[in-house]
């Protein structure tokens, strides 16, 4: 699972780099526009440790943001699963708010909170929160009739049992959503760092962008991709372990 993620990323990354080199040599572009393979390799070796530390910093914010999002999404999703007026309000609000590009609110957050850790965390959480919330609401508001029927008609269906049944029956979906939301959290944090932060890989990419240094940007993308693949692979592995442990 973990290795498969890494292989997949390496294949896509190499294909992308190959395409760039085809463009470079096909259109005879200068090293200033697209660096040569040797320059790319040298930059990658020189910057790897620094970028790895930056990605680790970004990932730390993304992981905390994702955990906060998952917790909130479950709380609101469980509260909004019923066909009551509360549930309807939560669903309608979630669908409408998620239609708005949350990242557009980032400047307001930076104005209000400054460019530190909290602003990055808040943006990361907001970007991955709504997709998780919609999935959780969808899963939690869909009855598993064949299992719930007995408990319902004998008066034993407490909300905890209802949530447990629905979560268990949709564990694969939940794992996929949570694992997929890692990308969103990471994207949210990087976007926040692009805009105004003074740390993280987004900040480093922004500096490289100002210098038009594609070799550094590509090196940063490599480290981001590898790190995110490992993180997602670990999430999927943890999900599989939970499922296995829960079923036996």
């Amino acid at each position: 699972m973990l290795l498969r993620r890494i292989y997949q990323f390496l294949i896509i990354y190499c294909a992308g780099i190959l395409l760039l080199f085809l463009l470079k040599y096909g259109l005879q572009l200068s090293d200033y526009v697209i660096p040569s393979p040797i320059e790319l390799w040298q930059t990658g070796c020189a910057e790897f440790v620094r970028y790895f530390k930056d990605v680790a910093d970004t990932l730390r914010v993304a992981v905390i943001g994702q955990i906060i999002s998952v917790i909130f999404a479950f709380i609101v999703g469980i509260a909004g699963r019923k066909a009551t007026w509360v549930g309807s309000i939560v669903k309608v609000a979630a669908y409408n708010v998620q239609a708005y590009p949350i990242v557009a609110l980032a400047p307001i957050i930076f104005i209000l909170l400054g460019d530190g850790f909290i602003a990055r965390l808040l943006i990361a959480s907001m970007i991955c929160y709504f997709p998780i919330l919609l999935s959780v609401i969808g899963i939690m508001s869909e009855p598993v009739v064949d299992i719930e029927h007995f408990y319902r008609c004998t008066g034993r269906l407490r909300w905890q049992l209802e949530v447990k049944i629905r979560a268990f029956e949709n564990l694969n979906k939940l794992t996929t959503v949570i694992s997929g939301s890692a990308t969103l959290a990471m994207a949210g944090t990087i976007v926040a760092e692009f805009i105004a932060a003074n740390a993280g890989i987004g900040y480093s990419i922004r500096i490289a962008l100002y210098q038009s240094d594609l070799a550094r940007i590509l090196s940063a993308l490599f480290v981001i991709g590898i790190t995110l693949s490992v993180y997602q692979g670990l999430l999927e592995w943890a999900g599989a372990l939970i499922k296995k442990g829960w079923e036996t």
Binding site: D146, I147, F150, C153, R156, K164, I165, F168, E247
Partner: peptide, 23 residues
């Protein structure tokens, strides 16, 4: 008044004896 039907299932997270004991 109870209605039972043939495609009903027990939850999968523990053994049958555990579920039957609880209900």
């Amino acid at each position: 008044l109870l209605y039972s039907y043939n495609t009903e299932r027990l939850p999968g997270w523990s053994a049958i004896s555990h579920h039957l004991d609880k209900i």
